[in-house]
Design a protein around this nucleic acid. Structure first.
Length: 884
RNA sequence: GGGCGGAUAGCUCAGCCGGUAGAGCAGUACCCUUACAAGGUACGGGUCGCAGGUUCGAGCCCUGUUCCGCCCACCA
């Protein structure tokens, strides 16, 4: 590190070096330490194969801000990093690369394919972790976990076996959401719905032994081969006489019953529904009620199987659809074909239309586990920020369905179930069984499927800490403090972690759940790969630096809902970082190498100094409140205003007269003040902008009133109640600032060039006059004046600019330089404006309803406003009269 | 079809317990004032989606409504 700061901040010169510095000093490391309170955040594990996007950029930066803030506040802060093997997503990527060579996973076989996946993961996986480094994330890398690590896999096995032994895991034949492209079941939560323009076909089914027919409506005629009934509403007069009769199913010539079920809505379509229990969830349920057979008519690739007439076999389902309709038309059994909008489920991963498919899958019974998770949210052990998401969470848990955990994939934790070839029984256990637990046969074969990825993710709060062992880490770090994640995985992940946490540890895994906003483009569209509308954080980092990206991403993120961003937005962050850099550079320029700073002495720093200290304390207070309530975007605003507004625009500008003057004693005090405040600022800003603040801080001499550890990352976070505060002095200085602003405004509006040196004559009370006189040096400097005079009987000069504020009138002699017409116009418009406001206030005060019913403090405040407005109005009017 | 959220300045968003509408960016004018022109000072800009209601007083509370977004859902 060099001794002085370069003229402009170049983030890339420092960032890597600083990260190495932090790693070297292990500032992110969190070891068990019973003497300190832990503060723990679980990093939502990104997919091994994913790339950093702005969603991570904002969400994870927020976590880093919280962690860094708590770390500086004395907590033993642990941000636990990790990655997720992401079953379907990862397998798909490798299958895609195989497909490019014209191969499928079946050509390789399970073992070779899995090996390839591991290779692929080692090569491309974890790239996102190095990107996290670039983002400056302060996680404890020594604890990096991966959902397929031996320890975590052990935990997966353990929870499976436990639930299996409790009878909460069971195997069932159900309709699953079958993805015919990936050839696997996917969960309800992995679907998208898409509205498509389809057709509603009216098919005529002849009644057996009669000339009558019954017409059914369907959007998926190809499933008619699997029809095992026709259903009507029991109260439907049109069909009452047909219930119990049989339909001769066209094309297949099979007899199926007509049944009555209240599920059928008479007013929809024809009021008669074909029932295909093997291909439709409703029909499945209805079939169960009426004990209907289930005929699966498709293969795992959604082509027609051998249960259909020869001529349709092997056809893809949508080809078959056309052919079935053609056949019905030829038989004159197609009553109608109408355009129809319908929504179809699409697989999130493959984008293929889901085919409901009958299959044997493993399920977890969720009801029992849901109850405690509901209770925890209701009784306040679990809190949501913003709170509205609690409803979403509760609604899902209260209507929870059993969880299908088997996936027909090869990448993931293989289901620890062995089937007996003899008795067909299923066995499980912590070690691979050698004999069937039911009949003792050794003819065992392991289930081919793997577990849903979320079946390992839901253990994230416990497995990296050593569960199922009752480890010291688990004891110390569990429960964690807050989970920060995206709202779309409340069901998939958050709720399940709560359930398993309560089940295994009896405590919620985290007290708070903070849901981050969805990051969208300027048109409000979610970032997506297909649209290509995303912002690559690495690109904007290259352009503006990490601190700028972190600052802007968080500043733009509202508390709930969504945020709209464009790459250009980050420029503002870059400017802000540079501003801080330059301000620091300026200040450091006044400090000689090895110079010792004087302790802070409030007696010697004047009103402006006390005001500045007050600003620091106020900002610290606001920061603390904002961060505590996860109002992280507010925290960025506080830092921004403290640095730009308070420190640069006022603090440094005021200090310049001392710094550039010759009073060495005063200079010493001012430097002490400014370094003290800058040190405090760097601390407050460090969680948001860790790099630039650390770099500056390392150059900053040690101030005796602050602690000085090796890194800013572990320096004390300023606490408002422990900082010097001077509310009275600050209020006085605020009045001086108002006077300065008034003078600047009058000058600017009158078009008097900044170079023209002016004087100010101020008429004000004795106290205010004393204040202005004492501050005259500062006022002169900041308002470009040569002289300020103030007393209660100050006379109005003949030709002058005038400004009026609360309790004072400022006159600026301007004979010969002021454009009288312009100034009169300015005063007139000001009079009009004040008159309008005054009119409103007076009207209010004349209203008996208001004066009778408004609370006294409001009344008093309103009267004060009126008096002030009257004072200003009088002054303005007199000025207008005098100005000729 | 249900549930939830949003609509405030050109843009992105604040706005507490109802008490004269705010910030940043963008814009305009004037300034290269010795940290920073990625800067300074000043200024302009809003019927708070629409319509009612409650209230002395509504961006805020109530009712209805429109538009956007998200989530859930089995209407063939």
């Amino acid at each position: 590190m060099t001794d002085s700061l370069a003229a402009a901040y170049d983030p890339h010169q420092y960032e890597d070096k600083l990260y190495d510095f932090w790693m070297k000093h292990k500032v992110f490391r969190a070891e068990r330490d019973p003497s300190r309170k832990p503060y723990t955040i679980l990093m939502p594990p990104p997919n091994v194969t994913s790339q950093l996007h702005m969603g991570h950029g904002t969400g994870y930066t927020m976590q880093d801000i919280l962690i860094r803030w708590k770390r500086m506040s004395g907590y033993n802060a642990l941000w636990l990093p990790g990655t997720d093997h992401a079953g379907i997503a990862t397998q798909m990527m490798v299958e895609k690369s195989l497909a490019a060579e014209g191969k499928t996973r079946h050509d390789l076989g399970r073992e070779a394919f899995t090996k390839k996946l591991v290779e692929w993961k080692d090569k491309y996986g974890g790239m996102i972790l190095s990107q996290f480094r670039s983002m400056g994330f302060s996680c404890d890398w020594d604890r990096l976990a991966y959902t397929m690590d031996p320890q975590l896999s052990h935990a997966v096995r353990k929870i499976f076996v436990d639930l299996f032994n409790e009878g909460l895991i069971y195997r069932g034949e159900r309709l699953v959401n079958w993805d015919p492209a990936l050839k696997t079941a996917v969960s309800d939560d992995e679907l998208d719905n898409q509205e498509i323009q389809g057709h509603l076909y009216h098919l005529i089914y002849p009644i057996d032994g009669s000339d009558e027919t019954i017409t059914v409506a369907t959007t998926r005629p190809e499933t008619m081969f699997g029809d095992t009934a026709v259903a009507v509403n029991p109260d439907d007069e049109r069909y009452k006489h047909l219930v119990g009769k049989q339909v001769r199913l066209p094309l297949v010539d099979r007899l199926i019953p007509i049944v009555a079920d209240s599920y059928v809505k008479s007013e929809f379509g024809t009021g008669a529904v074909k029932i295909t229990p093997a291909h439709d969830p409703n029909d499945f349920e209805l079939g169960k009620r009426h004990d209907l057979p289930r005929i699966d008519v498709m293969t795992d690739a959604a082509t027609m199987n051998d249960k259909v007439p020869e001529r349709f076999r092997g056809m893809a389902r949508f080809v078959a659809r056309k052919e079935v309709i053609r056949a019905f038309r030829e038989l004159e059994l197609l009553a109608k074909e109408e355009p129809y909008k319908t929504t179809v489920p699409i697989s999130e991963r493959s984008k293929e239309i889901i085919e409901p498919r009958l299959s044997l899958q493993w399920y977890v019974n969720m009801r029992a586990m849901a109850a405690p998770a509901i209770e925890a949210a209701k009784d306040g052990r679990l809190n949501f920020f913003p709170d509205l998401w609690k409803k979403t969470y509760l609604h899902w848990l209260e209507n929870i369905q059993d969880w299908c955990i088997s996936r027909q994939l090869w990448w993931g934790h293989r289901i620890p179930i062995w089937y007996c070839g003899k008795c067909q029984g299923a066995s499980s256990g912590m070690t691979d069984p050698t004999v069937c637990s039911h009949c003792g046969s050794s003819d065992l074969k392991q289930d081919e499927d793997v577990l849903d990825t979320w079946f390992s993710s839901w253990l994230w709060p416990i497995s990296p800490f050593g569960w199922p062992e009752d480890s010291a880490d688990l004891e110390y770090f569990y429960p964690t403090d807050v989970l920060v994640t995206a709202p779309e995985i409340i069901f998939l992940w958050v709720a399940r972690m709560v359930m398993v946490g309560l089940k295994t540890r009896g405590e919620v895994p985290f007290r708070d759940v903070f849901l981050t906003p969805t990051v969208c483009d300027k048109q409000g569209r979610k970032f997506s790969k297909t649209l290509g509308n995303g912002i690559d954080p690495m690109e904007v980092i290259a352009k503006y630096g990490t601190d700028a990206v972190r600052f802007t991403a968080v500043q733009l993120a509202p508390i709930g809902g969504r945020t709209r961003m464009s790459a250009e937005d980050f420029e503002a962050g870059g400017r802000f970082v540079n501003k801080l850099w330059n301000a620091s550079r300026f200040l450091l320029g006044y400090i000689k190498p090895g110079q010792k700073l004087a302790p802070l002495n409030p007696e010697a720093i004047g009103l402006s100094g006390m005001w500045l200290l007050n600003e620091l304390a106020a900002a610290a207070d606001r920061m603390e409140k904002s961060l505590t309530n996860y109002r992280i975007n507010d925290a960025t605003d506080h830092v921004y205003h403290l640095i730009w507004g308070s420190f640069c625009d006022w603090g440094l500008e005021t200090a310049k007269s001392v710094l550039m003057g010759s009073d060495e004693k005063a200079k010493e005090q001012t430097l002490s003040l400014l370094v003290y405040v800058l040190d405090g600022i760097l601390r407050l800003a460090n969680p948001i902008m860790p790099f630039v603040t650390e770099e500056i801080w390392q150059k900053l001499p040690h101030h005796p009133n602050w602690d000085r550890p090796v890194s800013l990352a572990v320096a004390k976070f300023p606490q408002a109640d422990k900082l010097p505060q001077f509310p009275d002095a600050a209020a006085k200085w605020a009045t001086v600032q108002a006077l300065i602003a008034d003078i600047r405004s009058a000058r600017s509006q009158s078009g008097i060039p900044p170079k023209t040196v002016l004087q100010a004559h101020v008429r004000a009370s004795v106290e205010l006059s004393a204040l202005f006189t004492a501050a005259s040096t500062d006022i002169c400097r900041l308002a470009s004046l040569s002289e300020v005079r103030a007393n209660p009987t100050m006379e109005r000069p003949g030709q002058c600019l005038a400004a009026v504020g609360r309790g004072y009138e400022a006159f600026i002699p301007a004979a010969g330089i002021v454009d009288i017409a312009k100034e009169r116009a300015r005063l007139s418009s000001e009079i009009t404006r004040i008159n309008k406001i005054l009119g409103g206030i007076e009207g209010k005060l004349a209203n008996a309803n208001f004066t009778d019913r408004a609370p006294p403090e409001v009344l008093e405040q309103t009267r004060g406003q009126r008096d002030n407005m009257r004072f200003q109005l009088d002054s303005l009017k007199r000025n207008l009269e005098t100005l000729t």
